[in-house]
Design a protein around this nucleic acid. Structure first.
Lengths: 219, 219
DNA sequence: TAGATTGTTAATCGATTAACAATC
DNA sequence: TAGATTGTTAATCGATTAACAATC
């Protein structure tokens, strides 16, 4: 599998939180933020925010801070979120439904264009305004204009099979919500680990907290 | 907010993937793994796996590898997954339903004991074997035996309110699936960022891939 | 023995943190 | 001017990677 080394991953993971706060501040009618404000809200150190903003390459105004609109644009550009990415959602179970209903994605430039499932009870029905298509029709339906991303919310047993199909259709990016390690060609990029990794972190935090192994530093 | 500095976070995030593979191999009747095998499956470098295993403190057998059962135990112990953590799920929407249906959690030692929602259409109905209780009854229902964790899958507008209630009940750990930055007392630990952070990473990978900014190294 | 593996120590790299300069 | 802020450079820390020793 192709490996893409993405620099500044920790900063990238923090970006959506900044955006969330910035949009909120804009709604309140504010037009400038200081790193102090952002840091307080994010519960992190000032210098972390500073470095992150330096990364997106925006100049602020000393003693005043950063223009909120400019900062929003700069972060979105840094994340590539000003260009819309299209996706197909495969698997209309509860997780798929949740993802489809995650409104923020449209703001992040992700547009889910089609939904597939293999359950005959679901096929043909509508889910949040999308008709659910038969998984068996992936090839015929997506061949002419394949979306950028396939979002996989299928069962573990069908994950590889579905991955093969979306790859055959020309999709290069897979966001894999199953916990199966997919075997894919070199040019396909798979984004993995959503739930389990998060719980692992939480469990270890709890464990350390209880045993007093960790200083009560921030997070 | 209290900050817990958890060392080896990247390793911890990889652990569930090792476990997944190990359980699979055990089902196949195997009793030993080498780091080579694990690395191949995880699509990572051998030395990464080696270091991670060293972290959980298990000795292997040269030329043979690690005993699968021992390695499973060691990882589970490292993650604190051999002790069951109890949780209450607040918000029985599609995301909450998906989490409730994530079978792996029981294997990871997370037991969701109760489910709450504020929707009168849902209250009193059953969801995957759990009766949905009225959010308004959180205090009375959980006061006597509060679970360890509150899993928040509520709307952004009610997130803080619900957080206050679960804290009042004595819950110390919150797994926050909303994208709201909660204000909580110092002794409460919040685990945040699930979806948006993941998409930020994927978007940047795609952006870098398209612009050719990154060498095609692995991931 | 040779080779595959674990085990260990050192080197590198990158992210975080600290310190301080610049400026409005 | 003083102080709050951005901007920049250096120091520290920790994770990854490399190199090699040990051993069955």
């Amino acid at each position: 599998m192709k490996k893409i080394k993405v620099p500044n991953a920790p900063s990238i993971r923090r970006m959506p939180s900044y955006l969330h706060k910035l949009y909120h501040m804009r709604l309140e009618g504010k037009s400038f933020v200081s790193t102090t404000e952002l840091a307080e809200h994010m519960n992190t150190e000032l210098i972390v925010v500073r470095k992150d903003i330096a990364l997106v390459g925006l100049a602020g105004q000393r003693r005043i801070g950063y223009h909120i609109n400019e900062l929003i644009s700069a972060i979105n550009e840094y994340l590539g979120w000003q260009d819309t990415l299209t996706a197909t959602l495969i698997g209309a179970g509860s997780l798929g439904t949740a993802i489809l209903g995650f409104d923020e994605f449209s703001r992040y430039g992700l547009r889910i264009e089609s939904v597939f499932d293999c359950d005959t009870n679901k096929i043909g029905r509508a889910l949040r305004g999308h008709e659910i298509f038969d998984v068996a029709t992936i090839r015929t339906r997506l061949k002419t204009a394949p979306p950028d991303i396939a979002i996989l919310c299928v069962s573990a047993v069908t994950a590889q099979l579905v991955a093969d199909q979306v790859i055959a259709v020309g999709i290069k990016y897979i966001w894999n919500f199953t916990n199966v390690s997919l075997t894919v060609p070199d040019y396909v990029i798979v984004q993995k680990e959503v739930l389990a990794g998060g719980f692992a972190m939480l469990a270890v935090k709890i464990k350390n907290d209880r045993s007093g192994d960790c200083l009560p530093i921030k997070e």
